[in-house]
Design a binder for these strands. Structure first.
Lengths: 116, 116
DNA sequence: CCCTCCTATTGACATCCATCTATGTATCGA
DNA sequence: TCGATACATAGATGGATGTCAATAGGAGGG
């Protein structure tokens, strides 16, 4: 151990809003945040989110992701499920189609985790 | 295709600061950002960053990560390399020890990518 | 009803990734 | 120069992940 150590305490108890730049993260909070950022750690999913953010009505039909993103329909469906499980998007079935929308609050919470 | 389509244009040319919430991301920008978020998509790495952020002198010796994080020394070294490659941390060798510090600007750039 | 269209699920496959042990490299002290 | 210490690298391995083809599930139109 280096002499300058400084006895860094690890607060396992969750703070109100776990942040990377606040007190040292415990395992549980770190795991939660890591799961969130994992959802952002894929170019296809980031493009899905950006298309949702830019959509005039705030929602995009599944079928409208397939062409622009150049991935198969099951692949798109898989990514939408990952984003949905992370709480970043929500799907709404309307007739034959499913319209997805962005959960900006959820994204803001992730942003807050790396905020000063 | 749904009738409400709306011809979403994909700007492949990089804007000044690619953001998920701005114009639809192109492949290149999405790939860059995904690589950045991948570095955050691990609980051990998030805890490393949080320990660096909370360190009184702004830097932490490698040896001081091993105990608190409960991982082997090579594993810690691996994660520090991943964070270093992502530009999020920098190492400074001083004698036998290597002190790592946080690049807050780099982290801020990632945060800006999901900023409103 | 049957057929068509849209979406989700399954199974298979290749790749990536986190982790460890073992080893290499570099620095300091004696 | 030798041994000890701190960190990095290499190799191996089990598990997670992105992708697609095939198929299932559901909704609407004849």
């Amino acid at each position: 151990m280096a002499k300058r150590s400084g006895l860094i305490e690890v607060a396992e108890a969750a703070a109100c809003c776990p942040s990377v730049l606040g007190a040292p993260l415990g395992s549980a909070d770190a795991g939660d945040l890591a799961r969130g950022f994992s959802a952002l750690a894929d170019p296809v999913r980031l493009r899905v989110l950006s298309m949702l953010a830019a959509a005039p009505d705030g929602e995009v039909c599944v079928c409208d992701f397939v062409g622009p993103l150049g991935k198969s329909q099951p692949t798109i469906s898989h990514h939408l499920k990952v984003l949905g499980d992370a709480g970043l998007v929500h799907g709404d079935r309307r007739g034959k189609w499913v319209w997805y929308s962005l959960d900006r609050g959820r994204l803001a919470r992730l942003r807050a985790a790396i905020d000063a």
